[in-house]
Write a protein that binds this DNA or RNA. Structure first.
Lengths: 147, 147
DNA sequence: TAGAAATTGAGACTCAGTCTCAACACGTAT
DNA sequence: ATACGTGTTGAGACTGAGTCTCAATTTCTA
């Protein structure tokens, strides 16, 4: 049985004359194995642990394709390398990032979206995506620090 | 005569028992030479062209210090390496980035700030900074593409 | 002037990500 | 069947921003 995301990815690939190879399927499964943020290396290691040897090159290539298909987006943070997160089955959300403990709180606020649409309009800008990251101290760390 | 930013940087360094060395001054001057976004390598090259040889290591170290002092902030984009921009003498602003031509439009909107403060409050989060990037097609590129 | 602490440059190093290229898969036309 | 074209793969070399190391040097303070 083929999962919904497999179907979507296959369709995207077909549309571009590309192939849904076994390697691509393995990578897709690993990517959707859980619903957290991850980075390319997590996939490399995850697959290796599961006994599937897929080359780094293929993994990077496939992640790019997944971003192209809209099934993943790239979440850049202040760190050096990109992180990914699923879009399929999730609403858009932004992030509060604690600079103390690294915790990442996902937020979803329709007001932001509305406000952004307004600003884009003012500039004749047609938005396709946005990314909002707010850095600071989360509740836990704030509590720890006060006295 | 010492510029305002030099004074601020010196004070920051003093407060941490650090020194305002000739190299750090050269780097600071180069950084404030113009008011655009730049990356570490621009400083390396800028100084070299001006006949000052300051090592990459010192430049990276000093850029970190400048971020620490609040005179610069790190603007990460979808590219691999960080970009910097001045904060001194500028209001906070966010960015509209055209994925077609790379143009970067700076926006500044008090409504965003207010909304963000509200959301942070809801989560007991104390924000120290934020970064909003909206990607899409700018007016020029949009016009070019429609017929 | 001596000693402690900070700083510097050169270059080795790291590491995520990219590129190259030969080997392979697979569909289609001959 | 055969040949061709196009897409794909893995191994490993490569890239390039950024970091680290360390001996030599500078600066501050006593």
């Amino acid at each position: 049985m083929e999962s919904a995301e497999e179907k979507m990815f296959r369709q995207f690939l077909d549309g571009d004359g590309l192939k849904f190879t076994p390697e691509r399927r393995l990578i897709l499964q690993e990517v959707f194995r859980n619903h957290r943020h991850f980075e390319a290396d997590d996939i490399v290691i995850g697959l290796r642990n599961r006994g599937s040897r897929v080359s780094r090159a293929s993994i990077y290539r496939t992640l790019h394709l997944l971003v192209g298909s809209g099934l993943l987006i790239n979440v850049y943070s202040a760190e050096k390398h990109g992180h990914y997160e699923h879009t399929f089955g999730h609403d858009h959300h932004d992030h509060l990032i604690c600079t103390e403990c690294g915790r990442m709180i996902e937020i979803s606020d329709p007001e932001f979206e509305a406000q952004q649409a307004r600003v884009c309009n003012q500039h004749g800008f047609v938005a396709t995506s946005h990314k909002l990251e707010i850095r600071g101290i989360c509740e836990c760390c704030g509590a720890k620090k006060s006295f």
